[in-house]
Design a protein around this nucleic acid. Structure first.
Length: 321
DNA sequence: CACCACCCCTGGACGC
DNA sequence: TGCGTCCAGGGGTGGT
């Protein structure tokens, strides 16, 4: 669920709360979520947070000594900064213990926060009495540790396209003209442009009045320019509203956003098009393997492949506003 | 290269 | 009320 705006909101709130703080200790509850060195060094223990960087949907917490932890929130990941419980509050009770996955080690020499919500995988203890928690029920997200920020770029972020907020019209045009895929598939491809997901691609295509199956290489320079402008407006607006909180998205201060109230097609299958002059009904179907919503009036184009099942009736049953 | 199916995983919605 | 089933979603991988 977190796409560029939500990840940017996490970055900003995280930056306010953790930059300059020292990481005193880390507790790894589920080590499987960490790829790369699972050592104290890899997880910045003993280091001080220098900055928090975002590219596309990914974050990096960079330490002063140069190491960094890349965070991908996947579908349900959260990074939350909270006051760390007092030592006297951290004595595990039977109830709290039952939340702890079997196999986790309770090396309780340090005052660990024990009253952890379910699906908490990693907890960093910061100075100033704060704790940073990584939680992710569905575990589509994860952490990648790197000795240097450059290594994160070399090994991971270089595979991504330009960030959706900084891509140039010429850059997008060139990249789109290199593929015959539909716009929906192309814009979801993080190697083409980084940061867009299912929600914002649908919203962007609606705003630009482009059908999701429009061949990407049919986009001319002028339309690419318009897409870049619309994407910036859409994404910046969403950041200003704190992102889209559909299910469980919150920023590092546990605040939810309100952009979901402005969605014009996503989650609105079966409902009336919000464009005043349009009487259309939003439909949805499978495009590029994703549930896709569009207005057939505002976004004329081919119907999806006849073999694709049309999920319209099912989606219409549960309009998410 | 393009595109597909499949997998990862859980909670929420739904049907009975 | 309670249980089974379906499904969303990003991204990686392996096959066609």
């Amino acid at each position: 669920m977190p796409e560029l705006p939500e990840v940017e909101c996490v970055r900003r709130s995280l930056k306010r709360l953790v930059v300059g703080r020292r990481i005193g200790a880390v507790r790894v509850i589920r080590s499987g979520v960490i790829r790369g060195e699972k050592t104290n060094d890899g997880l910045l223990v003993g280091d001080r947070v220098e900055r928090v960087v975002r590219h596309g949907k990914q974050l990096a917490i960079v330490g002063r000594a140069g190491g960094c932890v890349c965070v991908h929130l996947g579908m349900s990941g959260q990074l939350c900064v909270l006051p760390r419980p007092d030592e006297r509050d951290t004595k595990p009770t039977p109830l709290q213990r039952s939340n702890t996955p079997a196999g986790s080690t309770h090396a309780a020499a340090t005052p660990w926060p024990n009253a952890l919500p379910a699906h908490t995988h990693v907890v960093w203890l910061l100075d100033g009495g704060l704790a940073l928690r990584f939680t992710d029920p569905r575990r589509f997200g994860g952490l990648w540790t790197f000795a240097h920020f450059d290594a994160l770029w070399a090994e991971r972020w270089s595979r991504l396209g330009p960030d959706a907020l900084t891509i140039t019209p010429a850059g997008l045009h060139r990249r789109l003209s290199g593929t015959r895929r539909g716009l929906k598939a192309a814009l979801l491809d993080q190697a083409l442009v980084a940061g867009l997901g299912n929600i914002y691609v649908d919203e962007l295509l609606f705003g630009a009045r482009l059908h999701p199956m429009t061949p990407a290489d049919a986009i001319d320079r002028a339309v690419a320019t318009s897409l870049v402008g619309r994407a910036r407006t859409l994404l910046r607006g969403a950041v200003a509203r704190g992102g889209s909180s559909l299910r469980d998205y919150v920023d590092a201060q546990s605040r939810s956003g309100s952009q979901q109230l402005r969605h014009r097609v996503y989650g609105r299958a079966g409902l009336r098009c919000k464009r005043r002059a349009c009487r259309g009904v939003i439909r949805s179907g499978q495009v590029a393997g994703r549930t896709t919503a569009w207005c057939p009036n505002c976004q004329p184009g081919p119907e999806p492949d006849a073999n694709n099942r049309d999920t319209y009736p099912q989606s219409a049953r549960t309009p998410k506003r």
